[in-house]
């Protein structure tokens, strides 16, 4: 079962690492978002430190949308999606495979964005990098879980990228709130991180428990 999850995920990740299609578009999209924020707010060093949690999460959220638009791209043609569904593993396993592939790519992009943001905005928070990455990763578990399900839901829909954003952004409000507050608490050094981590874990558990079942109903014939 874990082998099947790994195989499906690796097929997507390896394919993308060779073509670098999703990875590079996510990365350059993230950079453009950062440029937009810089031009829009022109923060000085102190303001940049205050804005950092929000900048990171907003950039992550927008960038995830780019990756999610492509989760099922490999299965778009020649009935490849139906072929994937024919695999002799439970539907939940197929879902987790697709989720893991998207998760790995998203995490990779986040790991690149974080130092880039600190450089571009002149923020000196290098000591907190491991903690911030851990929080980003924790939130990304649930975010990509929900996102992969919504990507499956909007497969073949008209103007799906817009639809994906319309569906994903309101549902991720708790994630955005707790993620931003957790990073802000770490930067403030005297803030409370624990309650926000708890909320992030609740979000992750709820979505990773629900989405494989929902995927099963979705693709049922």
């Amino acid at each position: 079962m874990f082998k099947a999850i790994y195989r499906i995920a690796w097929k997507d990740v390896a394919g993308d690492l060779r073509r670098r299609a999703t990875l590079s578009s996510m990365l350059f999209f993230a950079i453009s978002v950062l440029v937009v924020f810089q031009a829009a707010f022109e923060p000085d060093r102190k303001e940049a430190l205050r804005l950092l949690p929000g900048l990171l999460w907003a950039t992550t959220l927008f960038t995830t949308l780019v990756g999610l638009g492509r989760v099922f791209q490999a299965e778009e043609e020649d009935g490849a999606f139906e072929g994937l569904l024919l695999a002799s593993v439970p539907r939940g396993v197929i879902f987790f495979g697709k989720w893991l592939g998207n998760l790995l790519l998203t995490l990779l992009v986040e790991f690149l964005i974080l130092p880039l943001t600190m450089v571009l905005f002149n923020v000196d928070a290098w000591a907190h990098i491991p903690a911030i990455l851990a929080i980003l990763a924790l939130g990304t578990l649930g975010l990509t879980g929900l996102g992969t399900l919504l990507a499956a839901m909007t497969r073949g829909a008209r103007s799906r990228e817009t639809l994906l954003a319309l569906l994903l952004l309101p549902l991720t409000a708790p994630l955005l709130i707790s993620g931003v507050q957790a990073v802000a608490a770490i930067l403030a050094t005297d803030g409370q991180v624990a309650p926000w981590l708890k909320l992030l874990v609740i979000f992750d558990v709820v979505y990773l428990a629900m989405t494989p079942w929902a995927f099963g109903w979705l693709v049922e014939e």
Binding site: L167, A173, P174, I177, W217
Partner: peptide
């Protein structure tokens, strides 16, 4: 399916705010 996911998410949104 989206309606059910929303029904689970709405209380989480409320309490997180």
């Amino acid at each position: 399916i989206l309606a059910i996911i929303g029904a689970v998410d709405l209380p989480i949104i409320h309490y997180s705010v």
